[in-house]
Design a protein around this nucleic acid. Sequence first.
DNA 1: CATGAATGAGAATTCATTCAT
DNA 2: GATGAATGAATTCTCATTCAT
Lengths: 213, 213, 213, 213
Amino acid sequence: MPTAKSKQKKTPTAANASPERRRELLAIAAEVFAEQGYNATTVRRIADEAGMLAGSLYYHFDSKESMVDEILSTFLTELWEGYDAVLAAGLGPRETIDALVTESFREIDRHRAAVAIYQKEARQLAAQPRFGYLTDSQRKFEKAWLGTLERGVADGTFRADLDIRLTYRFLRDTVWVAASWYRPEGRHSPEEIARQYVSMVLDGIAVPAEVRR
Amino acid sequence: MPTAKSKQKKTPTAANASPERRRELLAIAAEVFAEQGYNATTVRRIADEAGMLAGSLYYHFDSKESMVDEILSTFLTELWEGYDAVLAAGLGPRETIDALVTESFREIDRHRAAVAIYQKEARQLAAQPRFGYLTDSQRKFEKAWLGTLERGVADGTFRADLDIRLTYRFLRDTVWVAASWYRPEGRHSPEEIARQYVSMVLDGIAVPAEVRR
Amino acid sequence: MPTAKSKQKKTPTAANASPERRRELLAIAAEVFAEQGYNATTVRRIADEAGMLAGSLYYHFDSKESMVDEILSTFLTELWEGYDAVLAAGLGPRETIDALVTESFREIDRHRAAVAIYQKEARQLAAQPRFGYLTDSQRKFEKAWLGTLERGVADGTFRADLDIRLTYRFLRDTVWVAASWYRPEGRHSPEEIARQYVSMVLDGIAVPAEVRR
Amino acid sequence: MPTAKSKQKKTPTAANASPERRRELLAIAAEVFAEQGYNATTVRRIADEAGMLAGSLYYHFDSKESMVDEILSTFLTELWEGYDAVLAAGLGPRETIDALVTESFREIDRHRAAVAIYQKEARQLAAQPRFGYLTDSQRKFEKAWLGTLERGVADGTFRADLDIRLTYRFLRDTVWVAASWYRPEGRHSPEEIARQYVSMVLDGIAVPAEVRR
DNA sequence: CATGAATGAGAATTCATTCAT
DNA sequence: GATGAATGAATTCTCATTCAT
């Protein structure tokens, strides 16, 4: 509701429209970004998909960049709500990993496109100041997972013979790359996928020798 | 694996120069592609890095596309030499997985940039007929790994309670994403990384209950 | 001096609103045009300043162009009322110049923005048929000033050793460019500024030799 | 001559071409800018005038902005060479004014288009940090002229009854607006125009009373 | 009277590619 | 083998304008 003399210099266009329309458009954009890659996606393509002309998108958003920005920051905000809840619950290392993995697959389920974009583009985007929060998030992320692993090694829950940073990367990648193949309509629920992933990660895919015997 | 030469459409230019120069230039290009992404990389940038002007690259290559083509096909050719040797060795499922993972990390070590490019761009490139071999390779790849897993489940080596396609994806991603963080000068040799990965994947990161006791 | 209404091409929109609102909006528009330049001024910016949305301006005006049109024609209409009165008064050359300069500064005081716009944009706008009156006005203007100068040279009031067209341009520019720095709240009244300008122009800024002696 | 590894990140294109070609293109651009105004001039128009495609201009210049930048800064550099020489000559106030006016008309003669651009666009461009030198130059300019006037008033050369800032603006505008009508092929040489301007400014256009008698 | 959403015609700019030298 | 200059198509973004509500 612009009042007389309100000169919104910075954001001439953005944040005008109704939140619902924005969300619709962002969902479309996210889908296309995820499929084609951010750079390879033209604004025109998004507009086509939304049934409007390329220029019309600029009524809703400042730029292509601000679209990814909003897609990623929205996703990360929600992710951290979930993660923070898990981390605040005071669970043991094994249960924390379990809960984080489960939470992650729930996020992948809810924000598949955003996660895929994050995976592919984060490194490059993070170079721009505007996307500094990506780096921040990554740091927090590392702290959460690595810390849990360290706790687990300390209390004997996790193996001590593995390079812990390697283990961290293994876990991290293992979970998130799933966004590249995950389909919401697929056979398994995110919880079921999470259950199996946790099981693989914690206990391995091999049948233990003493069982096999 | 089709090699990417045979394409001298109009000009008698491409594929002229000495093979060594080509390889040098491709190495440079691969590095830049890996770092910035294929789309985001300008021919000019590659030329800059090579100490020449953008136009000059066209003496050596037909197009930007033919550069990735050659980078990826060279990599895949080598990869399959290694894989085929492993698969032909008649090993048991556990040993085959071990060998494939090890071979994979060796390839990551040798072709880090190419692997990173493959990870990021394969899906999109594969849409073009020229890159049909990417899809072929992926199919062969799946057959090799999935087959090994199935063999393992059948003979009791691997757990039967896991969705096998899930396991396959888990394994595949787990190994290859490593290219995104792997640095040849890093602490661990590719063989050491492979050893730890295999150990995690097969036996899990948790200390088994009966040991912990 | 054609007035810029009579243009309701398609819509019955323009020239609807109350004349006061129009004048308010035109004053705002003139200010922005003067400050940023006609081309660089967006309709949105004017609307912002007026506390409405860009589209809403089109209830009041046919187009951006019709805004400048109305601003300039209104100004010129008033200018010529003043000038015509001076020219009809039958004054001598010196007194006529004096009166014209004074009248000009009064117009600058009243229509600072319009004058500034005129100075900057007239040449370009005049190329369009719609703004033909700008050229007409300029011709009339030249006739009035140049004629007065010629009269003055003829009767010995003004120096005969100067190129008269040069003198004309000198005078014309000298007066009107003042619009670019004039501020109504400034130290001097328009009449005082005019007095000093006339004095400079007629008698020069140097102290005459025989006085200095 | 780019050497291997020379990554000119900031200026990917500009400053490549031979200086002569640059100068040619800048001369063309200046002409168009002067005639149509900076904003109203499209890059395409400049390219048309130069007999090339719009995109081709970007081989020579980074942007439309960098074209005006180079045009203006080149002009100002030369202007100050001339001005500085005058100011260093240790002339009296009257002679200094004379010399500055003459130098100014010489610059108008040499850089007519640049001067016209400066007149029309300086205020707006100066808002951008990149064009900070415009403000600097203006300040120096004011200091030079105003200082000379003050010296003249102090030593009795110039009238003391005039507002000195008004006089300064009068002089400044009077000289530079001439760029808007000056044509190199015109009747008068820049020196002749300067002579007449100086005469008008110093001694006025009126015949002194005691002479007229 | 005004808003919200869109249109559509450019605008500047980028970049792979070509080619004469 | 490489340079310098250009092409031309595509891309992001801007903005005056329209119009149903």
